[in-house]
């Protein structure tokens, strides 16, 4: 680990300036991802701007929705009464992530910005375009069991590891950011990027921009929801594939649906075409199977992740089944 400066501003503007002014400065929230990356020499900030003194941890009602502060802890959000009542899918996704100890440290902003778990990204002796542009993608011809089947490029085939983000993209959330040029709102679906030729950029956040909150609009998905996560052990592991499903049912007929998958792409993967394939249909396994087929269009596998071509649709079907009976 290298030496670094550490500051704890109490004013949002000071925090933003501190990072905007200094290309080697970065925010730190719970530190559960950043500190690991620093220990491994993957990220080497010279200045840490600790944002934990900023008043950004509230969860409140705002304009027909929930506003969740960027510093709200993953555990606090998952346990929050309003969240459980209005957006139970979000609570499910959060509780499927990491461990209780980590969720007690991790923040909403940090969760969205956690880096990929691609092992080549974590080993500074190996090639990785995301860590060091131009060195090549270690995973492309290497061990790519955990990697993407959608939206990858030949520069990077990594997946975004967050569970929470899968729920947020399904729920049409909006990210509120504040930066040196002022405040802006980014729809969750546009927040994370596909790798293209610039895999070193995970998101569309500009330097110095601070996430202040996430807005989740009210929707009729308060009952029939499921976050189904398949992993190599029963708990405390990243997803091989996960699926978020939220249904509005009229009897057995699907009135509205929201679907997204995790562990399949460089960003949380919203499935709008598959959602449309569900609307107006009966909530049966046959319907779910058709929607899963739509969802899988364009999927392509690498040497070790061909299983995802089958696991992903099956997980989606299972999430839909669970949501229906929830």
């Amino acid at each position: 680990m290298n030496q670094f400066q550490y500051v704890r501003p109490t004013k949002q503007q000071a925090a933003i300036e501190a990072v905007a002014k200094d290309a080697n400065a970065t925010f730190i929230a719970g530190g559960t991802n950043l500190v690991d990356l620093m220990k491994r020499g993957v990220m080497t900030p010279q200045k840490l701007v600790d944002i934990n003194r900023l008043p950004l941890a509230k969860i409140e009602r705002e304009n027909n929705g929930l506003r969740i502060g960027a510093l709200a802890l993953n555990s606090a959000v998952a346990d929050d009464k309003l969240v459980r009542e209005k957006q139970p899918l979000l609570a499910l996704a959060l509780n499927a992530g990491a461990s209780a100890q980590l969720r007690n440290m991790a923040t909403v902003g940090g969760n969205m910005l956690q880096r990929t778990r691609c092992p080549y990204f974590y080993d500074t002796t190996m090639p990785c375009n995301k860590r060091e542009p131009g060195t090549g993608c270690g995973a492309l011809e290497g061990i790519n069991r955990m990697h993407a089947i959608f939206g990858f490029s030949d520069k990077c085939i990594a997946v975004h590891p967050s569970d929470m983000s899968v729920a947020l993209v399904a729920l049409d959330a909006t990210v509120l950011v504040s930066g040196p040029k002022g405040d802006r709102r980014i729809s969750f679906a546009d927040f994370h990027r596909l790798p293209g030729d610039t895999p070193h950029r995970d998101t569309n956040l500009e330097p110095g921009e601070l996430i202040t909150a996430v807005d989740v609009p009210d929707a009729p998905f308060t009952k029939h929801v499921s976050y189904y996560k398949v992993r190599e052990r029963a708990s405390y592991a990243f997803a091989l594939v996960s699926a978020a499903a939220a249904l509005e049912l009229d009897g057995n007929t699907i009135k509205a649906a929201r679907l997204a998958m995790g562990g399949v792409a460089h960003k949380p993967w919203r499935l709008t075409a598959a959602e449309q394939a569900l609307v107006g249909k009966p909530a049966t396994e046959a319907t779910f199977r058709q929607a899963a087929e739509v969802a899988m269009q364009g999927a392509k596998a690498f040497k070790h992740n061909a299983y995802k071509l089958k696991l992903a649709p099956n997980t989606l079907i299972q999430a839909l089944k669970t949501a229906t009976t929830a």
């Binding site: 778990r117 092992p119 080993d123 002796t125 052990r233 029963a234 708990s235 405390y236 592991a237 990243f238």
Partner: peptide, 19 residues
């Protein structure tokens, strides 16, 4: 590379209580 890609207990899985 002749090098392990599993390097910690987040990617080398051992059973947790739930298993």
């Amino acid at each position: 590379f002749g090098r392990y890609v599993t390097k910690d207990l987040a990617d080398y899985h051992v059973p947790v209580h739930a298993d």
